[in-house]
């Protein structure tokens, strides 16, 4: 502590201004705190999905055939999930997490061109994922599965919808950073701006890694 004491004695107002107890930037701690909070948010959604699994009174169901109301009459319809498509989306999202790491690496190194490349790739992956979800949702809708059709559909749309909106926010955030970078406003010493977005992006990705098996693979 003596060391810290002497350190302050010599600190200029500007130094003091940058003083933090951990040495880390406050924004980084904030994003970690926020992610902790979000964990509970998604935990609640996922638990609700699980609690209500298999308790729908009518179809359609994720995998199995069921009786459902389609075009005004009850009929047998098949499971709605298109797992291959979603698997592709999942893979793309996973890759994007990798891309953003590379983008951050180059941001810290100051390789602007590579930074722009990888960051664009990340954003494009995000856009692909969201489009996949939009397609999936409309597809379900045409198969007779609206938001309030049954317990499965409500819990499914709420869970994946909230995740999708997080991805969308992530895309907007990353795009903002991308624009900054393109304008040359992301020098290495400001790479934290990208790091924060990247942390959030990883989180959104990890959540999907939980959601995907729970929702699409578990029967």
């Amino acid at each position: 502590m003596a060391q810290a004491a002497t350190a302050t004695a010599e600190m200029s107002p500007a130094d003091e201004h940058h003083w933090t107890s951990t040495g880390l930037d406050s924004r980084k701690i904030a994003i970690w705190g926020f992610i902790g909070s979000e964990c509970l948010f998604f935990a609640s959604l996922i638990s609700t999905y699980l609690v209500y699994k298999g308790k729908s009174l009518v179809g359609p169901l994720p995998h199995a055939e069921s009786q459902c109301l389609l075009h005004g009459k009850m009929q047998t319809c098949e499971g709605v999930f298109e797992t291959p498509l979603v698997t592709a989306g999942t893979a793309v999202l996973l890759f994007s997490s990798f891309f953003v790491v590379l983008a951050l690496y180059h941001a810290q190194k100051g390789n602007r061109a590579k930074l722009l490349g990888w960051l664009s790739a990340t954003v494009m992956c995000g856009v692909f994922f969201v489009s996949m979800q939009v397609y999936e949702f409309t597809h379900f809708y045409h198969k007779g599965m609206g938001y309030s059709t049954n317990l499965f559909s409500t819990t499914f749309f709420t869970l994946t919808g909230f995740h999708g909106s997080h991805v969308t926010l992530g895309v907007i955030w990353l795009s903002t950073v991308l624009i900054l970078a393109a304008r040359g406003k992301l020098p290495p010493e400001k790479s934290l701006n990208l790091e924060l977005a990247a942390l959030y992006w990883h989180f959104v990705d990890v959540v999907w890694i939980v959601i995907f098996p729970v929702v699409y693979l578990m029967r």
């Binding site: 502590m1 810290a4 004491a5 350190a7 302050t8 003083w19 933090t20 107890s21 951990t22 880390l24 406050s26 701690i29 904030a30 705190g33 926020f34 909070s37």
Partner: peptide, 21 residues
């Protein structure tokens, strides 16, 4: 509440004066 909590959380973790463990 969440916004405020995040703020105070970070404040306490990160802005303690030198020597305040």
């Amino acid at each position: 509440s969440i916004a405020a909590a995040l703020n105070f959380f970070v404040t306490i973790v990160n802005l303690r004066a030198p020597g305040m463990k």
